[in-house]
Design a protein around this nucleic acid. Structure first.
Lengths: 198, 198
DNA sequence: GTCTATAACCGGATAGAC
DNA sequence: GTCTATCCGGTTATAGAC
C-alpha cells in the first residue's frame, strides 16, 4: 500500500465509507467493510481515525459541507413562476433518480446523528443548510420571474424542504415516477400561488 | 417468570421491542436489550421467535396494523375545507408531539425494512396503508364540508402523505412548533384550493 | 506508515437441566 | 415453558514487527 499523508488517507476512507453507507446502510458500515472498500488495512484505519465513531462524525460533517452542489448549478429558462419551480423541482428529482442510494444514505446519516448527543447538533445544522439553500433557490426564482413572494422566503423555504423530503422518502419507497410528477406539479402550483407582482 | 402462552409472550416481546427501538433506535434493539426491557430470559425469546429477524418482521407488521388509530377517531367540527384540513393536521401534529420517539421509530423501521430484500415489501405495504388512510381522511373531509375534490382523491392522498412525512421529519430534527404550524397552514390552504362545489 | 496477529468484547443462537 | 451456561461468528481496537 502506498504511503499517504494522514489527511489523504482520511479523505480516502471517508469516500469509501459514504459508498458503503449508500450500498449497505449505516448498519453495514463496519470498519472492516470500509477498509475493504477503500483497499486499506484495518490497522491503517486506526492510524488515521481514533475510532469508528470519529469517522462517522467526520462523515456527517463532510456530507453536510458537500450538499450544496445538487441545486446550485441550474440554469433557469425563464417563464412563469409555476414553470420555473417545476423546472427546479424536476432537476432535483433527476438528481435523486441518478443516485437514489446516496440520498438514502443522507437520511440514514441524519437519523443516526439524531440518536447521538454528540452528533445531534450536526443534524440540525444539516437542516439549516437545507433551509438556506431552499431560500436561495426561491430568491433566484423570484428574481428570474420578476415576481416577489407574498410571505417571508424563509417560511416558504421550510415548506419547500418539507415537500422535497416527503417526495424523496415516498419515491425511495415506491419508485413511482408518475406519483412523483404529481407531487412536483402540486408543489409548483401551490408555491407559485404565493408569488405576486413586485 | 410466569408461564405464558407463546402468543402472549410474543406480544409482550413486540411491545418491549417497540419501546427499545423508540428509545435507542434499531441499532440498539438487540435481542438482549429487548429481553431486558421485557423482563424475559434470552432463551424464552428464542422459544417465542425463531430469530431476531422474525421479531423485527413481526414488529413492522404490527406497527403497520396499529397505525390507523392516530387518524381515524377524529371528530370534525365542520366549517370550511381549510379549517377542516387544518383541524385534521393539527390533530396529527398533536399525536406526533405526544410521542415523537414512536414516530421516529416508524421511520427507522421503514428504512430498515427497505434494506432487507425480505422486509422490503412490508415497507411498500406500510406506505400503501398510509395512502389509503389519507384518502379516507380526504373523503371524510369532502363529505363533512359538502364539497368534492377536483382531482382524484388517490392522487391528493399521496400529496397529503408527502406533507405529513416532511412535516414529521422536519419537526423531529428542529422541534420548531411555529414552523410546523406554518407548514400546516400551507398544507390546508393548498389542498383546500383543490376542493370545489359538488 | 503499514502490516499481521490477536486481544477483548458483544451479538445471535443453542444445549440441556429443570 | 423457562432457565443457566455456553458456543461461535463478527466487531472494534491494539500490539509489535517491519
Amino acid at each position: 500500500m502506498p504511503r499517504l499523508p494522514v489527511a489523504e488517507r482520511r479523505e480516502l476512507l471517508l469516500e469509501a465509507a459514504l459508498r458503503v453507507v449508500a450500498a449497505q446502510g449505516i448498519q453495514g458500515a463496519t470498519t472492516r467493510a470500509i477498509v475493504a472498500e477503500a483497499g486499506v488495512s484495518l490497522a491503517s484505519f486506526h492510524y488515521a481515525f481514533a475510532s469508528r465513531d470519529e469517522l462517522i462524525a467526520e462523515l456527517v460533517n463532510s456530507v453536510i459541507a458537500s450538499e450544496e452542489l445538487a441545486l446550485t448549478r441550474l440554469e433557469l429558462r425563464g417563464g412563469s413562476m409555476r414553470d420555473t419551480l417545476r423546472e427546479g423541482l424536476m432537476h432535483y428529482f433527476d438528481v435523486l433518480r441518478e443516485n437514489p442510494m446516496r440520498e438514502k444514505a443522507m437520511f440514514e446519516l441524519t437519523q443516526y446523528a439524531m440518536r447521538s448527543p454528540e452528533l445531534e447538533p450536526l443534524a440540525k445544522m444539516q437542516y439549516e443548510r437545507y433551509y438556506a439553500l431552499a431560500e436561495q433557490a426561491l430568491d433566484v426564482a423570484a428574481a428570474s420571474t420578476g415576481l416577489r413572494w407574498s410571505k417571508p422566503a424563509a417560511e416558504l423555504a421550510t415548506v419547500l424542504v418539507v415537500l422535497t423530503d416527503g417526495l424523496t422518502i415516498g419515491w425511495l419507497v415506491n419508485r413511482d415516477d408518475a406519483a412523483a410528477h404529481a407531487i412536483i406539479d402540486f408543489a409548483a402550483d401551490s408555491l407559485s400561488a404565493l408569488a405576486e407582482a413586485a
